[in-house]
Write a protein that binds this DNA or RNA. Structure first.
Length: 623
RNA sequence: GGGGGCGUGGUGUAGCGGUUAGCAUGUCGGCCUGUCAAGCCGGAGGUCGCGGGUUCAAAUCCCGUCGCUCCCGCCA
C-alpha cells in the first residue's frame, strides 16, 4: 500500500507515529518557508505541514526516514511542496504531531493533528480542474460542464457523499431482505418487447435478422415466473430502462428495488415495506418520520383532498369542492363548467388576500400549463355580517358581482377561509382542475414556507382504479400493468363498468414523490385472459405477446404480489437532492445524452450491416 | 411533439443600443514560518454559444439554430 493510514483517521492519540499518506491536494497554503497541504482521500482530509527548516518545530523522534538527515529531507519536501498544485496526487512520509495549542481545526475530524512531512512525492500531476473540487462552489456550475467532467464532479464532497449514502441505503435494503429469507435473483437485460406500458429500448439481433430484444422496463414478468418457479420470496436491485422523455425524477435507465412474494395479500407487502422504510429512515436520516403507522389513503380520497395520487402530506391546505354550490350560479364560468360535467374546486392561500395583482396573475400563469383557463379568486378582507353573508367591503374579488350572497358564504365556508386568506378556484373538467390545484397547492406551500424540509411524510395510496380509458386509442388500458388483480368483489363488473373496478394496488409516497408501487397479481390464467380481453387484445395478440405467461399460469401458480421502489428517488429524498441525477454516478442529460462518453453515437457501417439495419438517410443527416 | 428559463475570461456573475466589456473566484509570478475560503503586491486571461438580420452603431433588439435545464404531453 502507498499509505499506512487514511486521511480521515489520525487523532491526537496517534501523535508521534510515523505515517505515510496518499491522496489529492485539496488546497495548498503557501507561507513561504512553511507550506500547508490539505491532503484529501475518500475518508477525509489531513493537514500536512512542510517546513524548509528542520531546526524549528520538528520533534526529534518524529522523523521516520532512515539515513537522510532531517534538514535535507525537509528541504526536499519543501521544494516539492512548492511545485504541488490543487488536485495533484501525492504521497507523504512524515510524523503525526499534535497541533500546537490554539491551532486545532474543529472543522476537521483530523483537526487535532497535522503530519509533519519529511518526504513528499508527486504521484500524478493535475491540470487545473474546470471547477473547484473542494467546498461547495461546484454546486453552482453549469450542469453540462459537471456532466462532461463527471469524474471530477464525483470527487466533490457533495456528490461523493450522495454516492456513499446511496451505497448505505442499498446495503441496508439488501441486508433487510437477506435477513428475511428473500432470494436475490438476477433477471435478463435482453428481453422481449411488449406494447403495454412505456416505450421499449430495443436491441437488434445479429443472429436473427430483423428481430429485436427489448431492455426491461422492469423485471415484472420474470419475477412472476419466479413465483411460479416456487421461490416464494424474491428480490433484486434491478436496472430498468424506459424510452420516454425525461424529468428531474426520471432517467432513461434507473434502479429499482424489485420484489415479489407468494401467498401474500396487499397488507403483507405493505407491512414489509413500511417496516423497512421506518428502519431505513432511522438508520440513515436525522429527520423524523411524520406519522407511523403510515397513513393509508384511498385513491379517491387523495384526489379529493390533494388533487393528485401522490400527495405531499407535510402540510395542510387541502382542496375543497364547491361544484354543487355553484351548479346554478349566475357566474357563467362556474355554471358552464359544471354543466359540461366538470368540477369546481379550490385551495386557500393563507393570508393572501392582500397579494398584489401581479402576484395573483403569477398564480394564474402558474396554473395554465395544466390546462386551467384561469383562476377565480376571492380575498377575505373583512368579517361576515350578522346573517353570515359577506358585504362587498369585506371581499376583494373580480367575480363577486356574479355570485349570490349565499354562494359566497357557501364558498367561504367550504374553504374554511379566515379573514386575510385568499380563496383560489378552478372550474374545469376533473382532469384539469385536479392537477392544476394540486400543483398550485404545492406552489402556495412553498411560497408560504409551509413545507418542512425536515420531515419524512410517508403515506400509502390504495384502491386505485384498475383501468383508464384511452381517448386516443378508444380502449381501456391498465393503470398499473395488465397483471394487476382487481379487487375480488369487482371482477363481476369488469366488462360492464370498467371505470368502477378498483385494483389490488398500492403506492408508497414520500413528501409528494411516488417512490414505489405494487400490486397483488392475477394468478389464474382464466382471469388473466379476461383481463387481456378487457384491454382489447385479440386472442392472437395475447398468444403472441403473453402466451408464455398464460401457459405458465396453467402449471400451478401461487397467489402472489410484490412491489418496486425507485432507488434514486428514495436516495434523492434522503439526500435533499432536487434531481435524481445528483444521486447517480453517471446520469444522462434531459435529452438522454451522455456528455462524458458522448453517447448515443454513430456506429460503423459494418456494425449496422451485421445487425441487418439500414438507417434512413434524412434521419441520419439530421443529426 | 409543445411551452418556459438560461448561455458574457477556467468557474460564478454585472452590463441589456454607443463602456478601454465591470466584479468575484480560480490561474500565473513575487513576498511571507501557523494557515485551514491564508494574507499582501503584481500579471495574464473574453470570437459575449453559433449563424443571419435590423441599425451610423449589437453582448444588448429581431429571426433561426445548438447546448443545458424546468414543465405539459408521454412515462409507474
Amino acid at each position: 500500500m502507498l499509505k499506512t493510514h487514511t486521511c480521515g483517521e489520525l487523532r491526537a492519540s496517534d501523535a508521534g507515529k510515523a505515517v505515510t499518506l496518499s491522496g489529492w491536494v485539496n488546497r495548498r497554503r503557501d507561507h513561504g518557508g512553511l507550506i500547508f497541504l490539505d491532503l484529501r482521500d475518500r475518508f477525509g482530509i489531513t493537514q500536512v505541514t512542510i517546513s524548509d527548516d528542520s531546526e524549528l518545530d520538528l520533534p526529534n523522534a518524529a522523523n521516520p526516514s532512515n539515513g537522510s538527515g532531517n534538514s535535507s529531507s525537509c528541504t526536499q519536501a519543501h521544494e516539492v511542496a512548492s511545485q504541488v498544485r490543487s488536485e495533484f496526487v501525492v504521497r507523504v512520509n512524515g510524523s503525526v504531531q499534535k497541533r500546537p495549542e490554539g491551532f486545532e481545526n474543529p472543522e476537521l475530524d483530523t483537526g487535532e493533528i497535522e503530519v509533519i512531512a519529511s518526504e513528499l512525492e508527486i504521484l500524478s500531476e493535475a491540470r487545473t480542474p474546470p471547477f473547484v473540487i473542494s467546498g461547495s462552489q461546484g454546486d453552482e456550475v453549469d450542469e453540462a460542464v459537471r456532466l462532461k467532467y463527471r469524474y471530477l464532479d464525483l470527487r466533490r464532497p457533495k456528490l461523493a457523499e450522495n454516492m456513499r449514502l446511496r451505497h448505505e441505503i442499498v446495503r441496508f435494503i439488501r441486508n433487510y431482505f437477506y435477513e428475511r429469507d428473500f432470494l436475490e435473483v438476477e433477471t435478463p437485460i435482453l428481453l422481449k418487447s411488449t406494447p403495454e406500458g412505456a416505450r421499449d429500448f430495443v436491441v437488434p439481433s445479429r443472429i436473427h435478422a430483423g428481430r429485436f430484444y427489448a431492455l426491461p422496463q422492469s423485471p415484472q414478468q420474470m419475477k412472476q415466473l419466479l413465483m411460479i418457479a416456487g421461490f416464494e420470496r424474491y428480490f433484486q436491485i434491478a436496472r430498468c430502462f424506459r424510452d420516454e422523455d425525461l424529468r428531474a425524477d426520471r432517467q432513461p435507465e434507473f434502479t429499482q428495488l424489485d420484489l415479489e412474494m407468494s401467498f401474500v395479500e396487499a397488507a403483507d407487502i405493505m407491512a414489509l415495506i413500511e417496516e423497512m422504510l421506518i428502519k431505513l429512515s432511522a438508520k440513515i436520516s436525522d429527520k423524523p418520520v411524520q406519522q407511523t403507522p403510515f397513513p393509508v389513503m384511498s385513491y379517491d380520497e387523495a384526489m379529493a383532498k390533494y388533487g393528485i395520487d401522490r400527495p405531499d402530506i407535510r402540510f395542510g391546505l387541502q382542496l375543497f369542492e364547491v361544484t354543487d354550490l355553484v351548479r346554478n350560479s349566475q357566474f357563467g364560468v362556474f355554471k358552464n363548467a359544471v354543466a359540461a360535467g366538470g368540477i369546481v374546486k379550490g385551495v386557500l392561500f393563507p393570508q393572501g388576500a392582500d397579494l398584489s395583482r401581479k402576484e395573483i396573475d403569477g398564480l394564474i400563469e402558474y396554473v395554465k400549463p395544466y390546462g386551467a383557463k384561469g383562476l377565480a379568486w376571492i380575498g377575505l378582507t373583512g368579517e361576515a355580517a350578522a346573517d353570515g353573508t359577506y358585504p362587498a367591503e369585506s371581499l376583494r374579488s373580480p367575480i363577486i358581482k356574479f355570485l349570490g350572497k349565499e354562494e359566497i358564504a357557501g364558498i367561504v365556508s367550504a374553504s374554511d377561509a379566515r379573514r386575510g386568506d385568499l380563496i383560489l378556484l378552478v372550474a374545469d373538467e376533473e382532469g384539469v382542475t385536479n392537477p392544476a390545484l394540486a400543483n398550485l397547492r404545492l406552489e402556495i406551500g412553498a411560497r408560504t414556507d409551509l413545507i418542512s424540509s425536515d420531515l419524512l411524510a410517508f403515506c400509502w395510496v390504495v384502491d386505485f382504479p384498475l383501468l383508464e380509458y384511452d381517448r386516443d386509442e378508444d380502449r381501456w388500458g391498465a393503470i398499473h400493468h395488465p397483471f394487476t388483480s382487481a379487487r375480488d368483489e369487482d371482477w363481476s363488473i369488469l366488462e360492464q363498468r370498467p371505470a368502477d373496478v378498483k385494483a389490488k394496488a398500492y403506492d408508497i409516497v414520500l413528501n409528494g414523490w411516488e417512490i414505489g408501487g405494487g400490486s397483488i397479481r392475477i394468478h389464474r390464467s382464466d382471469q388473466q385472459m379476461r383481463m387481456f380481453q378487457r384491454l382489447g387484445l385479440s386472442e392472437s395478440e395475447v398468444d403472441e405477446q403473453f402466451g408464455h405467461m398464460l401457459e405458465a399460469f396453467q402449471y400451478g401458480a401461487p397467489p402472489h404480489g410484490g412491489i418496486a421502489m425507485g432507488i434514486e428517488r428514495v436516495v434523492a429524498l434522503f439526500a435533499d437532492a432536487q434531481s435524481i441525477r445528483e444521486v447517480m454516478a453517471f446520469p444522462k442529460t434531459a435529452t438522454g445524452t451522455d456528455l462524458l462518453l458522448e453517447a448515443p453515437s454513430l456506429v460503423e457501417d459494418e456494425q449496422l450491416a451485421e445487425l441487418h439495419i439500414a438507417v434512413r438517410e434524412q434521419e441520419e443527416s439530421a443529426k
